[in-house]
Nucleic acid binder design. Sequence first.
DNA 1: ATATAAACCAAAAAGCAATTGGTCGTTTAC
DNA 2: GTAAACGACCAATTGCTTTTTGGTTTATAT
Lengths: 236, 236
Amino acid sequence: MLNSHPDTHPAQGIVTQLRAYLAQTDLPDDGRLPPERELSAALGVSRTELRKALDVLEAEGQLWRHVGKGTFMGSRPLDTFADIAALARRSNPAEVMRARLVIEPEITRAAAFTATPAAISEMRLCLTRSRQAETWRQYEGWDTRLHRTIAEATQNSLLLGLFDTLNAVRRAVTWGRLRTAPVRPLPTHHSFAEHDAIVDAIEHRDMAGAAAAMRAHLQTVERKLLEKQMRAANED
Amino acid sequence: MLNSHPDTHPAQGIVTQLRAYLAQTDLPDDGRLPPERELSAALGVSRTELRKALDVLEAEGQLWRHVGKGTFMGSRPLDTFADIAALARRSNPAEVMRARLVIEPEITRAAAFTATPAAISEMRLCLTRSRQAETWRQYEGWDTRLHRTIAEATQNSLLLGLFDTLNAVRRAVTWGRLRTAPVRPLPTHHSFAEHDAIVDAIEHRDMAGAAAAMRAHLQTVERKLLEKQMRAANED
DNA sequence: ATATAAACCAAAAAGCAATTGGTCGTTTAC
DNA sequence: GTAAACGACCAATTGCTTTTTGGTTTATAT
């Protein structure tokens, strides 16, 4: 009825019409444009033709669509670059250790500012349990839980998420054969005193001290790891 | 006040009763045990007393609980927070800002140590382009790229991945209506000088200075954001 | 005093209806 | 005759409500 003269390719005209609409219309913050059914009615074209025009713009990369979600301007948001497996593949133990040295002291510093008494007593529990551990596996469990409790104490779910990601990559990265010995942790294990120092600093709201203690602890872990690596290399 | 009294008599019996129940009962695959209300009825004890017993077992690390989920045997599954959308849903602009303040200065510090001349000249390019930006969208593009170039300069793919995660969450979080104004960035925009200071410090291998400059920059951004929020609130 | 029962709370889950891009079949128009 | 238009349907997704669940508080009773 309306376009009684199909002189040119009709789709092309609808594309320009759609471009004009997008240029002059205020889109919401997320760049979402109206659903196809509404838009086709607003533009006075059929949904079929509108979809052809949208196909063109999508091929040009100017918008992206998804069933149930809608149609959005801009480029499709890259989903989950935080793929643990991919990260672990690209990374290596040395990088993980350096990343921990960058991230965890600052998380500890923040935790010293925000930790609740409940969080601190949970840290103390981890200290006690890790000392009572009969196997290295148990010890590692409490050690991991201590570090995560510190991250939780920041009361920042995003920081906690980043910590978890870091932790997941740490476990996923191949640490070669340098694994824990089957003997039980000795009471002179370096981490005990270092963990105590960290929690003490947090309890005293000593932000600088907490960060320094965590950094010192991780540096010790790094050194021990290198020594193990050396020994393993010499055994070959 | 906490555990001055061992109070072995009442709770201890329920703990053993609960242990016996857990030993003889077939739990589902996920290790979930009945809700407290059912379990207390089944064991013939009050919920208060059952909860005391559950507290003991939880402190021992034999089970974990979560509101809305339930109570489960074993150790709490370290929920892999790699999902950007889930993180964004749990987080908020204030958390994102705080997380940036915790993470990015240290990344900048590390970058000051490892940045190559090529990386530094790319940072300089971002500075120039951001000054030439005609729209806020363009400016944001170069600003984002500058920050990412700094993260790349750490030459640590894991740190870069964590930065990307942080950045993705930042974009995914709903910033409400406080969006960029449609005017072009003024030459007196605070970020210009601050960005310069960051890159200068990196170029001079001044790790402490680079971290401080980044922290100052982010604090300015935070302040400006709060001002915007205030203004938006007053307009309502 | 202490334990109990009940009520309430917020987080999480489960269920349900509405929305939305994608697809197919039939009808309509020129 | 051919292509557009229309309608119906589908599955993914969202938004909302209701239910469940651990955690907390309050009043009551023993």
